[in-house]
Amino acid sequence: MTSMTRARRAARSAERNRDLSLLVAVLLALLGAALTVVYFMALQAGAAPRLADLAYERLPGTGVQNPVTAVLLNYRAYDTLMELAVLLAALLGIWSLGPAAPGFQRSGAVLAGMVSWVVPLLIVTGGYLLWVGGYAPGGAFQAGALLGAAGVIVRLAGDPRAGLPGEAAQRWLLVAGVLVFTLVGLGLMVFGAGFLTYPPKIAKWLILAIEMAATVAIGVALAAAYVGGRPPGPQARPTAEDEDALSATEPAAENTPAPSP
């Protein structure tokens, strides 16, 4: 008897849920239609005054030729600094939730061979994207994403730490972005410019230094987020064979991509 009433109650609540989700769908369709009308009218009205003209006008003094990089690292450098801090905070949250799950089993010869091809290629491409960001689409975030992808591949191939160094070294690499960014800003204040107000003559090199540190920090943060917990310590590496395999993959993944002109 009770099971019957329970089943009936469940059926009724499912029905109510269906009605509710229908209502949500109708309301969201109305919202979508309203937004589309507003968007269409905005397009019809034509271009209002924009920041774009100002951004292009001031581009020669920013030290870079790519306007997006200029926005990210010169006009709105504060914002990018905070963005790196968000990434760092998210990773601290992940680490605080406990140790990482053990990794995947060590890959076979074919996958390992592919990884040893793809990972260096990703790192070189990351270095290229970092350098090219000065005058074409590219930059620290794209390069960092590639380094993070390299870390993901290394972890999938069986390295429990995604090719990253030990926890102490990881901490330094993770804060590198925020640290260099803040130090450059404070250094400029010491020399009389505002916080993160680059003098046009050395702007390019300051931005490059910040972007290099940011690339490493972003790449390490993304790979460490994929590991998903505090990095496995020395106890987690029991055999000498593991140790060898790890140190064989490490230099490739932690190398800072040096930009080449």
């Binding site: 924009r50 997006v68 990210l72 949250g93 939730l97």
Partner: peptide, 26 residues
């Protein structure tokens, strides 16, 4: 040429979205 300011906003947004997603998944 396209307006670089929304492009930069999108780049920032992607990074924040990835961070938030990673934390939420964990």
């Amino acid at each position: 040429p396209p307006d670089p300011v929304p492009h930069a906003l999108v780049l920032t947004g992607i990074v924040v979205a990835v961070s938030a997603t990673a934390l939420a998944l964990m």
